[in-house]
Design a protein around this nucleic acid. Sequence first.
DNA 1: GTTCGAGACACTACGGCCCT
DNA 2: AGGGCCGTAGTGTCTCGAAC
Length: 286
Amino acid sequence: MTSFSDYQSRSAQYMTFIDSEFYPDYLDEARIIYGSVIEQFSELANMASSSAELLIRIVDTPNPSRTQLLRVFRKYVSPDTSVEMLKVKKKIPKIIADYGHRFRDIEQVKANLANRPKPDEALMAILIEYKSRGQKGYELTEAFFLWFESNFGSEYLIQGPVRAGRDVMLNEVLKDWQTKTPADILISRNDGTPLVIGFARYDSDRGGAQEDDRTGGNRDKVTDILRYAERYQLPLKVFFLNDGPGLTLGSMWNDYAALEKYGKGKVMVCTLKMLDERFTRDWLEI
DNA sequence: GTTCGAGACACTACGGCCCT
DNA sequence: AGGGCCGTAGTGTCTCGAAC
């Protein structure tokens, strides 16, 4: 049986690249999406007699414009208050009370708006940078679900959010599992016997490990799940779907190889392109 | 003296669930 | 039925200590 470690020298061949856009190609799209938002912000600003009033006017605007206007508000008026804070409508009076003194004066804001080029491509580029955050992870899980359905769809059950959505909570699907542990994938036999708990992650360019959901935390998950499998005599295994060029940076590949070794056959780490070779019925039924 | 890795924190998008 | 909030997604960026 080949291991994840064996693939390291050919890692590029087994990597899945999910396309990103090139600069400056996306500026055209950014102008379409944000041009009117920035214009609308200018209009609201020019009508307002204070920055707090501007915020109130923005909050009264229906979505999807509101969130985008709040982002522009943050850039021009109040870098201290995150859009996440401003999203909650009923907290707005308190935010104005607590942070209002740090809002940039409305006259200054109006002047700054007037002095920017039109269209303001710099601001548009900043705004669009976040648009596709998170999407690559969804592409990865969706690709796995499609692959699994076409290969094992009739023989096994698979659960989990295909794109966005609530994770599979282990305490809800495993009898007597105590802690709230989120997982991305659960595969079981048609009779309900759980076979695989899966975690998915796409890394574009992060090399360093993130403690909570990377290898440190992963090892704890493996320990807990395998101990559970032992106690209840279940054929339960742990699967890590990891992909993206970030895997080749730093110690990531070695960390995951070590994790797989630690699992003694009950843990498998794969990129999408390894699935056909490694994710077999034999492994599912170990 | 500079570079690098790891951890910590932060950011926005969006689907789905909950509440009215 | 619709609006609002929550949870999850990947990654940008800062700091600090170790290694070079």
